[in-house]
Computed example of a mutant assay.
Amino acid sequence: MDDLNQLRQSIRDIDAQILELTSERMNLCRQVGEYKRANNLPVKDYKVEKVILDRTRQQARDAGIEPDLAVSIMKNLIKYSVLEQDEIKSMMLAQGSSKAVKQVLLIGGSGNMGQWMAHFFEALGHDVQLFDRSRLSKTRYNYVESLDDGLAWAEMIILATPMESTNEILLDLCKRSIKAPIIELTSLKSPIMSGLNLANQTGLDVVSIHPMFGPDVKILSGRNIIICDGPKRSESVDVVEAMFRQTSANIIKMPLEKHDTFMSYVLGSAHMLNLLYANVLESSGIPFQDLEDVAGTTFAHQVGVTKNVVFENQDLYFDIQRLNLETDQLFESFKSQIHLMENSIRQNRRSDFKEAMKKSADYFRQN
């Protein structure tokens, strides 16, 4: 028993050393973040990350450690290092951007994404106020008394509202004399096209963006933010792009007319497929825990993604299907592929089944 206690004590000592070294590493990362900010360097450097992970794999092999374990540990260290550097960058931006402080009005600021945007623009050093008919009882941001008061005060306007509401707001703003740039965040652009078109005609300065993440995101490393180029380029698109380029997010430029087609696949089809999968499991009559107890890795990976979908905002996910003009085509594609797969199996056409798998594999190999 004494030998076992000694072994356990040695493990505790090593655990303490690991935590001390982790703290030391984070302090060094903070210094790296300060240097990057001072020299206007991006927080995220994918080339450096690849070098670190390749080196980690080799060092793990040399040390007799499973490379996947070592890489998993290193990825988490990199993740929190980027978080640390992102925070430094935001703080230093806030400290150094007083001359460029803007008065930002968030319409729909009580929603989850509205609160995320409020925090983001505040972190950049801007003065943020909210307008929303439903006011939160607990928020550190102030509400303007009326929309007119907010518009008169604002130097930048953010629309963090549902898609159909966003179109109505744009149409209303077109009737007013507004010089401040407007940023809209909708997940689809076709439902707001009448508002965007009228904004172009009346000279309203609107920037269409789409953050490809939800309000629970804490760090922007590896996250995509789409900035749409419309038929008439917004005067403020470069300003908005520069704001987000100060973070570790990936900035994707996309023509406005292509946005919803892409979203029908990266959002609509992904949501639909996972909801169908969840509904098939639910209708089986077998308790989920019983399935999970006997499952393998494929089931576990798929369920992990599916859970992320089914616990999301139900109204938003319904509208992403309902309001996308490409959804009918998506349904037809699903029906066609299910029909082909069903026929290959029912008619014992092994070659057709294998060919379908091969075509899919070839598609994913393109990258």
Rank of each mutant, 00 (worst) to 15 (best):
L323I: 09
N250G: 04
T247G: 04
L220I: 01
L196H: 03
D205V: 09
T297A: 15
D205H: 10
L316S: 03
H301P: 00
Q302H: 03
P211Q: 05
L220F: 09
M243H: 08
N308M: 06
E312Q: 11
M263P: 11
D216N: 07
K189L: 01
A295R: 08
D205C: 11
L291G: 02
S190M: 05
V240I: 13
I192N: 04
L204C: 03
G222Y: 01
L275E: 13
E282N: 14
L325K: 12
V237E: 06
A242G: 13
E235Y: 08
K258S: 14
Q321A: 00
F318Q: 14
D290L: 12
A242I: 03
D315P: 00
N308L: 11
L204I: 05
L220Q: 01
D319T: 07
N313V: 10
V294H: 04
I226E: 08
L188M: 05
V303I: 13
V294L: 14
L198I: 05
V294I: 15
N250W: 02
V280P: 01
L204E: 00
A300R: 10
T306P: 03
Q246L: 08
F288Y: 14
Q289K: 15
G230E: 02
L316V: 11
E282F: 07
Q321E: 03
S248T: 01
V240K: 06
N274W: 05
M263H: 14
G304M: 04
P191E: 05
T202K: 12
C228I: 04
I286H: 01
L291I: 09
M263I: 15
S236K: 06
D290W: 03
L325Y: 04
V207N: 02
Y265M: 14
H271W: 04
S264C: 11
S264D: 07
H259F: 02
M272R: 06
G296L: 04
P287Y: 10
P215V: 01
D260L: 02
N313E: 14
S234N: 06
Q246M: 09
Y265S: 10
S221V: 08
A249D: 02
D319W: 02
V217L: 13
V280K: 04
V240C: 11
T306W: 06
M272A: 14
T202E: 15
V240D: 12
R223V: 11
